[in-house]
């Protein structure tokens, strides 16, 4: 059932991508509508997959790389849905869909078996800590895609081109959406560490890198809100922030051993 749902989500994402490509050749809203519909179907498949796995495992399904990648893909689709609702930003479906295809492709070599949780992970803090972090990471990933797109496109177009301004503003909106989520993720993780290990901060590499990521985005927000850093400087900082996010999420597990080594 898990495999079927995962396959269903993957196929919907691929079909969605196909219709988005088709839309570029034949400028019809019908193809775009189909692309969006399939992406929303992929979101439904992913939601069902996460809920079913949660029910079957009897615990939040975020304990290994397979589960983390599925949750990440679900979070990306969720953030797209929120931004589509708030801003009618349908074009965000294209990078969100591409990101979901990439993440779901990474799940294929992973072990999908439901594994039991070690004692340290058996906590109700886990759900809120992980889900808030992943929603935040998903928004930051989309902000990065827009920022990277901005950096590439702004070399050929004037910086005041409307499409570039939209990309810059939407990237900023994604970051202010994400920042409270990663803050809740970090503080609930700290509260959880205090319950599990008796300290709210260990300077464990994963904790330290999550703090560094938070500080990079804090620099972005201070620069943008107080010093008016927009467009290229903001896009570069967004890219740097996402590099820190990526290192915190994946890199640190393999390079710097610590209390979070079970995430390998």
């Amino acid at each position: 059932m898990n495999t079927l749902l995962s396959l269903g989500a993957y196929c919907c994402c691929l079909l969605s991508a196909f219709f988005f490509v088709l839309k570029n050749f034949k400028k019809s809203r019908r193809w775009e509508g189909l692309g969006l519909a399939f992406f929303k179907a992929a979101f439904a498949f992913l939601s069902f997959l996460v809920l079913l796995r949660w029910y079957r495992a009897g615990r939040p399904p975020f304990a290994n790389m397979y589960e983390a990648l599925v949750l990440f893909a679900w979070s990306v689709a969720l953030v797209y849905a929120v931004f589509e609702y708030l801003y009618k930003a349908a074009f965000l479906a294209v990078p969100a869909n591409a990101l979901c295809i990439f993440l779901l492709s990474l799940t294929w070599p992973q072990d999908a078996a439901i594994k039991p949780l070690m004692p340290a992970l058996q906590s109700s803090w886990m759900a809120v800590h992980v889900v808030t972090y992943f929603i935040g990471y998903a928004a930051l990933a989309l902000a990065f895609v827009l920022s990277a797109g901005y950096l590439v496109a702004s070399r050929r177009r004037p910086q005041q081109a409307p499409v570039l301004l939209v990309m810059d503003n939407l990237s900023y909106q994604l970051i202010i959406f994400a920042f409270p989520f990663i803050t809740i993720g970090m503080t609930t993780g700290s509260a959880w560490a205090n319950v599990a290990w008796g300290s709210y901060w260990f300077w464990d590499p994963k904790e330290t890198c999550s703090l560094i990521t938070w500080l990079v985005y804090a620099v972005y927000l201070h620069g943008r809100l107080l010093l008016g850093w927009k467009q290229r400087p903001a896009a570069w900082l967004s890219a740097l922030g996402f590099l820190a996010t990526l290192f915190t999420f994946v890199g640190v597990n393999y390079i710097l051993p610590g209390l979070h080594s079970y995430t390998q």
């Binding site: 500080l215 990079v216 620099v219």
Partner: peptide, 9 residues
């Protein structure tokens, strides 16, 4: 603080 934290990690 970012640089010092990174060096420590």
């Amino acid at each position: 603080i970012i640089v010092a934290s990174l060096v420590g990690a």
